[in-house]
Amino acid sequence: MKTKGSTNKLLPQQREELLTTLKTRFEKNMVRHKEIKWEDVQEKLAANEDKLWSLHEMEQTGGEPDVVAKDEQSGQYIFFDCSAESPAGRRSFCYDLEGLESRKEHRPKNNAIDMAASMGIELLTEEQYHYLQQLGNFDQKTSSWLKTPAAIRELGGAIFGDLRFGRVFIYHNGAQSYYGSRGFRGVLKV
């Protein structure tokens, strides 16, 4: 994981393996990015070592990141975790540090907000989660913490989403809760 003040760069072999994986996934799932060309994405990635490192972290924790859109204003490509289920390497976490510290016993090993920050990504918002679900069927057996509005978080809650019965559901829990089937999905702009 990234430590404050450090520069994380991939080894040449890791870089090539990641780019090959991303290109293969990109070509296999053109429905997610119909009007985007891989060459343009690769050019952006080549100029952003830190973002490549973040994508590597997403991949290593089971996220299967893929391009889902291009921000026309900034020119950035938007990557979401596109694994069928919430990334396996990011499950069983509380929502944030405050939630984690409020647990008296049976603490999980981490929290979603801090792990995402250490990876250089952010949790999907509710709107982004709905957009992701238009691209396929995700979280049919798991659920994913979502970036929670401040008003909800101030009251001790956090939101998460899943897909059940052909429909996206957004729920709430206490931010200190954690489950083996709940992880988090990230977003990265390159």
Rank of each mutant, 00 (worst) to 15 (best):
K104A: 14
M30L: 09
E16F: 05
K189T: 08
V67I: 13
T21V: 07
L188Q: 03
S83E: 00
G63F: 02
K51C: 02
S86F: 03
V31Q: 14
F80G: 01
D66G: 10
A117P: 00
V190D: 01
Q128P: 05
S102A: 15
S181E: 14
A69F: 07
G166T: 08
G89W: 10
D96E: 08
F80Q: 01
D50P: 06
L52W: 03
T61Y: 05
G157I: 10
V41F: 13
I121S: 02
L155P: 08
F80S: 00
D50L: 12
N111C: 01
S54H: 02
L97C: 13
E57L: 11
D71F: 03
M1R: 08
M115A: 10
K37I: 12
E17N: 14
E43W: 14
L11Y: 08
E85N: 07
K189P: 01
Q73A: 11
F26S: 09
R167W: 01
H106S: 14
K37C: 03
N111K: 00
R185C: 00
E105P: 03
P108E: 02
T142N: 09
S143R: 15
Y129Q: 00
A47Q: 15
Q14H: 11
F165R: 14
V187I: 15
Q13S: 10
L155G: 13
R167T: 15
Y131I: 01
K2V: 13
A46G: 04
E27D: 15
E122R: 15
V67S: 06
Q76M: 06
L123N: 13
S144P: 06
D50Q: 05
R153Q: 13
T24C: 03
H130M: 01
R15W: 06
D96A: 08
K9I: 15
K104V: 11
G186C: 08
L11F: 10
F80E: 04
K4Q: 07
T142H: 14
L146V: 12
Q73M: 06
K109D: 12
N8L: 09
C94I: 01
N29S: 08
L100W: 09
T148V: 11
A116Y: 10
L123M: 14
S6M: 05
S102G: 08
W145N: 03
Q14R: 01
Q134W: 09
H33R: 14
G136F: 15
Q133L: 04
E57Y: 12
Q133Y: 04
F184G: 05
A151Q: 12
E16Y: 04
T142A: 11
E27K: 09
E39M: 11
Y95W: 13
N110I: 04
G180Y: 03
S83A: 15
S118M: 08
I152G: 09
T125V: 11
W145H: 05
F93Q: 14
E59G: 04
G161D: 00
S144H: 12
L19F: 14
V67P: 12
S144Y: 02
E154R: 12
R90F: 03
I113A: 06
Y129I: 00
S6K: 15
Q133S: 13
E85Y: 05
E127R: 03
A116C: 11
I152M: 09
T20I: 13
A151S: 10
I113C: 08
A69R: 06
E154A: 14
L22P: 08
E43G: 09
K147T: 14
